[in-house]
């Protein structure tokens, strides 16, 4: 039941921007250098995040990527859904029709998949980039 690397890197990229460059556009190259994620991979991921309305591109000499919304309005759930489509561990949670079993109307399992989806969504929809930023900076401050 793994989350894709792409999703994890998407959150890392956005968290990086929220922490280190909340107000100015930042180039992918710099994020790549600091996070160790390749430029090509970040480009793919940022394309999806831009499509989902989480990032903006700025042209020109000071160009790069900018958060499209305030960090307190972007939740981890929004980031993951931009990459994963939905967060259900089994398709039937959102689309019963996608289940091809003859016995789907009397499925003994579906309840638990719904409950797992709720647990996952409650977790990720209640963490914002701002929460992560504040916690991370506090931790960094405590260390140094």
């Amino acid at each position: 039941m793994k989350l894709s690397t792409k999703s994890r890197y998407a959150l890392e990229g956005l968290a990086y921007i929220a922490i280190y460059s909340p107000n100015e556009a930042i180039r992918i190259k710099q994020i790549a250098e600091d996070t160790g994620i390749t430029v090509a991979y970040l480009e793919q991921i940022f394309f999806l995040l831009k499509k989902a309305g989480l990032l903006l591109t700025v042209r020109g000499a000071k160009g790069g990527f900018l958060l499209a919304q305030s960090p307190k309005d972007i939740t981890v759930g929004m980031v993951l859904r931009a990459i994963e489509h939905d967060l259900a561990p089994v398709k039937c949670v959102y689309d019963l029709e996608s289940c091809t079993s003859k016995v789907r109307s009397s499925c003994v399992n579906r309840q638990i998949w719904v409950r797992l989806t709720n647990a996952i969504e409650n977790t990720v929809d209640n963490i914002t980039l701002e929460d992560l930023k504040v916690k991370y900076l506090k931790r960094k401050g405590d260390v140094t």
């Binding site: 994890r8 959150l11 890392e12 968290a15 990086y16 922490i19 600091d34 996070t35 160790g36 992560l132 916690k135 991370y136 931790r139 960094k140």
Partner: peptide, 8 residues
């Protein structure tokens, strides 16, 4: 792991 990655 970078600090940010282990933090997340």
């Amino acid at each position: 792991e970078t600090d940010l990655r282990s933090f997340l």
